[in-house]
Amino acid sequence: MDNFIFGSYVDNHSFLNRLDPRTKLISITIITMAFMWTTTPFQLGMNVLVLLWLYYLAQIKLGMALSSIKPILFILVFILIYHGIFPSHHLSLSHVNISGWLDGLQICIKIILMILVAALLSFTTSSTELAQGMSRLISPLRFFHVPVPQLSLMVTLTLQFVPIILNELNDIKTAQISRGVDFSPAKLTKKIQLHVQLIIPLLFAITNHANKMSDALDARGYATNSKTTRYHETHFRKLDGWFSLAIIVYLAVILTIGSF
């Protein structure tokens, strides 16, 4: 459960840890774009160096991050094989066309780099900080009637609801087992029926819970349109300015090299 609440945050007071969450969100988005628009092996090499530099700044071991690649390994192999079999141009090495495999490899490395750089964000920023940074950044969404100020309360509520739902689900399951329901059928229709029979009572039980919760919030004078103070205040410092500038310059460099 702890792992669930804290994600993969590593609190080590590194340079990246101390930056404003908004700086990190924007910078990492920009770096991802730079990585995405990479086309030549030379640019790819530069990206690898930048990634290593960033991991050095964050004081995170790369091996720790590599585990996040595991779930998509299958897709990466698929992408590699696809490009190997359908090469976009010809480059023969003793009568074997290897250009496709090289292209595929380059694309796979590019994807891995993009995932690793994005993972930095969760390594160096706590979820509360990130939630706040993000709610500041998406505040323009309020013009589309998205209740941005309430989102942070909703995030907390959601995390509170998870164990409640799990408890409720357990109760329903126990009740059904005690009435003789077999939870390991082989037939498809039976499997569908089981899920339906589990989720319908769950929805009845937890909407009941939600109604009580919203009455309780109302009774304690929670107003959905009032201004509230924040637990963590974010500050944009000089350091943030320099870091953002460096990242923007890097994007410009990658784009200029690519256009030659």
Binding site: F4, I75, I79, M114, A118, A119
Partner: peptide, 23 residues
């Protein structure tokens, strides 16, 4: 938002901005 702020809420305990930049 929960996924992007890095909570492992997607199936298989995945989360973080890396989901977005992945395939």
């Amino acid at each position: 938002i929960l996924v992007l702020i890095g909570l492992p809420v997607l199936s298989g305990g995945r989360g973080g901005l890396g989901i977005l930049t992945g395939p």
